[in-house]
Amino acid sequence: MRKYVLKRLAQVMVILFCILTILFVLFRLAPGDPVTRMVDPEMTPEESQHLIEQLGLDQPIWKQYLIYLKNCSTGEFGYSIHYGEPVAKVIWEKLPNTILLFTTAVLLSAMVGISWGKIAAWRKGKATDLGMTIAALVTHTLFLPWLALLLVWIFAYQLDWFPITGMVSDEVWLDPDAGFFTKAADVLYHMVLPLTTLFLIHFGSYLLVMRSSMLDTLKEDYILLARAKGLTERDIRNKHAAPNAWLPVVTSVGLSLAFSINGGALTETVFSWPGIGRELVFAVSQNDYPLAQASFMLISTVVLLSNVVVDVLYAYLDPRIRY
């Protein structure tokens, strides 16, 4: 097991190096550069040229690549061209917001989706199953910005239950008396609508995966044996069927969790959520190479590592798998 994990980690390093290179090439191949695209008639060509030199973008591409590799190996990802700040700082300012919203959303939709999927499979063909499956399919196919706007319109504008997008309210944050819990509650309050949207869009896929996995499991003989043993239905479902049905779902949840750190530009935009997803899209569109490269590296690393974790977890959940 230890040997396996070490081997996998070594693989991850190799893959990361490849990704590093691919990212570099990809971003340099993209048309435009961060200076030229500043379409500002105030900027003279001489000034543009000077800025390009100052940013080191006039260096031959191979030299830029070597510098980039050297920096990456020392964990130095440079300065964002757009923000003029270390990319680590830019990412660190936005990443917790994204994790807060998206990881919570994945966990919530996975938890609910899985437990409802379990129930739906158990009551296959009954009204509960039908209702849940249809709800899952319908919400899963909804267009996120549309749903988001609808929720904001109803619950924030018409009913005035929730704030119109954003992450915190300035009143609370500017109030010197507001303590940690008041502020935390304020963030939670702002999270309700985006979380609901993400939950509605995503729980369906977990529900459907769990349902079908559970249905497969229910055909197995050990379920029949469990029933013959005189176990209660609840025990059969939770102690025998579910642990087996979990297995395929674990992969799906693991990867979703990993990908949740890249957030979603669309969700963050419609809910004015200051997350990393928008930064990422912005960095790419602005040719902000250092920021874009570092963000993608971060995501790749997390996804690759979570793959290893999922595999290890798999071995833990399924005794048949041993490394």
Binding site: E220, D221, Y222, L224, L225, A226, H240, P243, N244, L317, D318, P319, R320
Partner: peptide, 10 residues
């Protein structure tokens, strides 16, 4: 042969 034993339980 028919998986009458639950594979994830001892």
């Amino acid at each position: 042969a028919m998986n009458a034993l639950n594979p994830v339980k001892r």
